[in-house]
Design a protein around this nucleic acid. Structure first.
Length: 581
RNA sequence: GGCUCCGUAGCUCAGCCGGAUAGAGCGACGGUUUCCUAAACCGUAGGCCGCGUGUUCGAAUCACGCCGGGGUCACCA
């Protein structure tokens, strides 16, 4: 149930009726008509801009349209007041039972309350994390992992058919470096001194890999050159690193549906086929790029390369797909990979990248635009840096690698739920400060705690009510006489609940999971306020001694709030806390 | 220099597919506890929404140009 959508339908139906009566000219487009919560509560419960957006196309004064529409709307039983205000807004007041109905809907629909059909079952692929399989995930990956996973959950809730996908970059030089690094650990496992040369990965997470290699090969590779072992060790080491990464993701409560391998694209003709497809469109040519303007590169020299004419699809310069030695650039398999996603039938693609990949956005969009004939939109979300602090001081440490803070470090210190919520308290394109001390603080300065505390209070009410012998099942509460919820503070709470389905759609439309976190904070704030009003006015307390009917109605309101908090936390991938003693 | 993100209260940030008197938390000041968890709540103070021009009935929001800060910039992935 989405009350705003229902009232918007009422508005557009009324407009259609006015057209039929000749009060409005025919052929008007109602797409721009919006029904929204007004910023100022004194402006009523809902406001519509219908008269203003239609004034010009209808060739009428906004006020004339507004008055005609007001007359129509006031005939509806749900509408108790309509007034024309400001430049032509129509402010609506709705009957109390409309808001009480929202409480009932939340109880009967449960965690499905707010689920939307907006996605229409369209297939969307969300690619995120895609960290190189050369070591454990570090803090830089955490935000992308959380944003991607929460976005996937959000889109699922809003009616999309979602696939979460990880692209394993196991085809380039970095996995050779991994293999050489692992070989040194293999020598170490055999009692020799490892030579961790400049450019190799020094982290001690490769020690177990060395052990595993010793278990498999004994001492047989010690006197061999890398032409003998490189390919095999590359394979084994990157497999083990992916196990590590899967474990890291699990620790963050992130699950992938599909892992795709870059290496698997080589030798199958997929890269050649993708490039050929572009060539057939006349988008591949041999040429020489200009040096970047304004930036002097000492080692720049003109080179003939195989280039993708990405400028034909919005990029600023054309991009090389093949090196001068004839090997593919990183971009080529990435084109093939995205082509593969298009061919698998996804209607929409989303990539979550770190902000350092900002320069990659236009060329990737150009490739997808070309290869899908402009039919598959690619949205790329860049997540900005996370800066770590502890008590306001910049924080650097790692138990495991010496050089970087790992995902495990963060999860062990802060917990998966807190980490996830905090990563969503900023929109993706703003840098985020993460203070290990602050995120564990139990105060309203900490939004995770604040929301969880509201949920704990709700559960406390339910516990006590059950002890008092009241049936607190959702079905029973839904049958309560909700007309009892007539106090303005209670109506206001119900109004906040009514915004939930609308918010889900707004967040999904913009691929903006952070909006869920902000809404939950506001919802918790409304609840805490209502809770405290019970101090001054005992009639606002949820449990009313000796009056089962009144208690049931008020508990229903609390429970409905709890349902929405749980549903919202579910989208964020955060487990609701029942009790916080 | 190109591209890109950011610039809103003392601080950290929401709001931005145009809408009414621009919001929240922290910090400051002042209140609330016989009560279902005060781990909370209520109130006061605090703003050329970086600057300018344009579009519009209407701009924090859209366009263009500046200023300031971050990221990034050919055969690395």
């Amino acid at each position: 149930m989405n009350l705003f959508a229902e009232i918007r339908t009422l508005v557009t139906d009324s407009l259609t009726a006015l057209v039929a009566e000749g009060a409005l000219p025919s052929g008007l487009d109602f797409a721009a008509v919006a029904v929204e919560p007004p910023r100022d509560p004194s402006h009523g419960d809902m406001a519509t801009n219908a008269a203003m957006v239609l004034a010009k196309p209808a060739g009428m004064q906004p006020r004339a349209i507004a008055e005609a529409l007001a007359a129509k709307l006031s005939l509806d039983a749900r509408v108790t007041g309509v007034e024309v205000a400001g430049p032509g807004f129509l402010n609506l007041r709705l009957a109390a039972n409309v808001w009480q109905g929202v409480v009932k809907a939340a109880l009967t629909e449960g965690l499905e309350f707010g689920r939307s059909m907006m996605g229409g079952g369209r297939k969307v692929n969300v690619e995120f994390v895609s960290a190189n399989p050369t070591g454990p995930m570090h803090v830089g990956h955490v935000r992308g992992a959380v944003v991607g996973d929460a976005l996937a959950r959000l889109l699922d809730f809003a009616g999309w058919n979602v696939t979460r996908e990880y692209y394993i970059n196991d085809g380039g030089a970095q996995v050779d470096v991994l293999a050489r690094s692992a070989y040194e650990r293999y020598r170490e496992a055999n009692g020799l001194e490892p030579e961790i040369r400049e450019g190799l990965y020094p982290g001690d997470y490769l020690i177990p890999v060395g052990e595993a290699l010793k278990a498999k090969y004994g001492a047989s590779l010690l006197d061999k050159g890398e032409e003998v072992w490189l390919a095999d060790i590359r394979e084994i080491a990157s497999e083990l690193m992916m196990d590590e990464i899967r474990g890291d993701l699990a620790a963050l409560n992130v699950k992938m549906d599909v892992y795709s391998s870059e290496k698997a694209l080589y030798g199958t003709g997929q890269i050649e086929a993708a490039i050929q497809a572009l060539r057939d469109m006349g988008l591949i040519y041999e040429g020489t790029l200009e040096p970047p303007k304004g930036k002097t590169l000492d080692d720049w020299e003109p080179r003939v390369q195989t280039l993708f004419r990405s400028t034909a699809h919005g990029d600023d310069v054309d991009r090389p797909v093949m090196k001068s030695d004839g090997a593919w650039t990183y971009f080529a398999p990435d084109i093939a990979y995205h082509y593969n996603k298009v061919q698998r039938g996804f209607d929409e693609l989303i990539d979550i990248f770190g902000a350092d990949h900002g320069g990659y956005v236009k060329r990737m969009k150009a490739a997808v635009s070309a290869l899908s004939g402009g039919k598959v939109p690619l949205d790329i979300k860049l997540v900005q840096l996370v800066k770590l602090y502890k008590n306001g001081e910049p924080f650097k440490m790692s138990k495991r690698a010496g050089t970087f803070v790992t995902l495990r470090d963060v999860v062990e210190q802060a917990g998966a739920d807190v980490t996830r919520f905090m990563m969503l308290t900023r929109k993706n394109d703003v840098t985020l400060d993460f203070d290990f001390a602050k995120v564990l603080e139990q105060s309203k300065d900490n939004p995770v705690f604040y929301v969880q505390y509201a949920n704990a209070r709700i559960n406390s009410v339910l516990r006590k009510s059950r002890e008092a012998g009241i049936d607190c099942g959702d079905a029973a509460l839904a049958k309560a006489d909700l007309a009892i919820l007539s106090h303005p503070a209670e109506i206001q709470m119900a109004q906040k609940l009514a915004e939930w389905p609308r918010l889900v759609e707004i967040a999904a439309k913009g691929n903006e999971p952070h909006r869920i976190a902000f809404y939950l904070y506001e919802l918790a704030s409304e609840f805490h306020a209502l809770w405290n009003k019970g101090n001054d006015d005992p009639s606002l307390r949820f449990v009313q001694d000796g009056n089962a009917a009144t208690s049931a109605a008020k508990i229903a309101l609390a429970r409905a709030t709890g349902v929405v908090i749980s549903a919202g936390l579910g989208i964020l991938g955060v487990t609701p806390v029942e009790e916080m003693r």
